[in-house]
Computed example of a mutant assay.
Amino acid sequence: MTALSKHGGGSRLAPATSLVLAVLLTACQPGPPVPPPSSESPASPSTSAAVPSGPAGSAPAAPTTAPAAPTAPAAVHFTAQGDIGLGTGAREVLDTISSLRPELSLALGDFSYEAGREHEFCDMVTGKLGGDFPYQVVTGNHESDGHDGDIANIVGCLPNRLPGLQGEYGIQWYADYPERAPLVRFIMVSPGIRFHDGNTLDYSRGSERWRWTAAALDGARSRKIPWTVVGMHTPCLSVGKYECQAGRDFTNLLIDKKADLVLTGHDHNYQRTHQLGRGQGCPALVPDTFSGGCLTDSDSAMVKGSGTVFATVGTGGVGLYEVNDQDPEAPYFAAWSGKNRDAALGTLDVTATADRLSARFVPAAGYTFTDSFEIGRK
């Protein structure tokens, strides 16, 4: 109620009352707008969060939906091969890869075999497989030192296509595939390869690159990625032309860390071991000898975690080398193909699911040799 004072036939507000009214009118004016609570961040301590309507005293309703967890794919499909070149054989193997329709291909080194023709090699690959196809490379000895090409040029025209790649692409890298809910960690390294300065990269025991590789394998296990696949150019075990260029200690590291599958090139043939592991009967795998204690599974259906399978797939297109079934390491091998026995160019075709890794050698047109194996969970 407003108090009025009559004076001389007119009316006016009493002074005290006038002051009260002014205060009230000021309080009724609109102030600066208060922004609504953000849905992007929690309310600040001085802001009251809205409570869903419901019975008095009831707790706020729980969210009706939760963020969806990454869904693992049913399978990952990839191919692998090295020692390719620019000839008819290379084109036939690329045609074979194209017909298999993999999601990616691991290229295990030795590409153009001639300096200055790297872009021609890249054009051949993209012409057969597509410009955006993940043709994932690691250097071989023919392009590492620049004499028969340069890995930097190959990387420039066949760049990485896998998200989340760690390391130096073309030299030493790993990537989980697919990036979310991965089924496979691909680890590509370069032991036994000579570079521009005339030195080979150091993968000796305890070296930085040794530790990097060990951590990449351990990291896959800690993330519970089902499969680890290591790719590199140089093999250790072989019934072909070369000795253990990858290094004895580094090869034993891959076995100790239980890499599931190790893929190599360099020897221009196909060779695939039984599953190999270390234990009481095999304190270390020693090149150029055979120890039955290192064989953990010798049939074509193997168990994950029991050992490592080594496969040389130097059948990407260039001329083949011979194989020697009298080699002291021959009992480690389940299958081989070379110039003098079941000769075949082709690719390894691999499918990985959460429970099984299945592989088969697929020959290029005109060849008949095949091989297949699988590794499954218990």
Rank of each mutant, 00 (worst) to 15 (best):
residue 8 G to V: 13
residue 17 T to M: 15
residue 188 M to E: 08
residue 168 E to V: 09
residue 63 P to I: 10
residue 45 P to H: 12
residue 32 P to M: 09
residue 203 Y to I: 02
residue 71 T to K: 15
residue 7 H to P: 10
residue 59 A to K: 13
residue 38 S to D: 11
residue 96 T to S: 02
residue 275 Q to C: 03
residue 106 L to H: 11
residue 114 E to R: 12
residue 377 R to I: 10
residue 337 S to K: 05
residue 159 P to I: 02
residue 78 F to H: 13
residue 44 S to N: 14
residue 143 E to G: 13
residue 127 G to E: 01
residue 255 I to H: 12
residue 190 S to R: 02
residue 233 H to K: 12
residue 378 K to N: 08
residue 102 P to F: 02
residue 35 P to D: 00
residue 137 V to S: 04
residue 100 L to E: 08
residue 310 F to T: 02
residue 133 F to D: 00
residue 31 G to R: 13
residue 345 L to M: 07
residue 179 E to P: 08
residue 298 S to P: 04
residue 337 S to D: 07
residue 285 L to G: 00
residue 61 A to R: 15
residue 124 M to A: 01
residue 280 Q to T: 08
residue 376 G to A: 13
residue 21 L to K: 02
residue 315 T to I: 14
residue 309 V to M: 10
residue 15 P to Y: 11
residue 82 G to K: 13
residue 147 H to P: 04
residue 186 F to P: 00
residue 327 D to H: 12
residue 201 L to Q: 13
residue 215 A to M: 05
residue 144 S to I: 01
residue 200 T to M: 14
residue 28 C to G: 13
residue 243 E to I: 07
residue 247 G to T: 03
residue 225 I to L: 04
residue 35 P to F: 05
residue 293 G to Y: 06
residue 130 G to S: 08
residue 161 R to L: 01
residue 182 P to Y: 05
residue 256 D to P: 00
residue 261 L to D: 09
residue 166 Q to C: 11
residue 135 Y to T: 02
residue 283 P to K: 06
residue 204 S to W: 07
residue 350 V to T: 09
residue 289 T to W: 08
residue 300 S to M: 12
residue 4 L to W: 14
residue 182 P to S: 03
residue 81 Q to H: 15
residue 88 T to N: 05
residue 110 D to M: 06
residue 117 R to L: 08
residue 292 G to M: 11
residue 347 T to E: 06
residue 102 P to W: 03
residue 142 H to C: 04
residue 334 A to D: 12
residue 220 A to E: 01
residue 278 R to C: 10
residue 166 Q to V: 07
residue 307 G to M: 07
residue 232 M to R: 09
residue 220 A to G: 01
residue 55 P to C: 12
residue 291 S to Q: 14
residue 128 K to L: 08
residue 46 S to T: 14
residue 298 S to T: 15
residue 117 R to S: 13
residue 41 S to L: 14
residue 144 S to W: 02
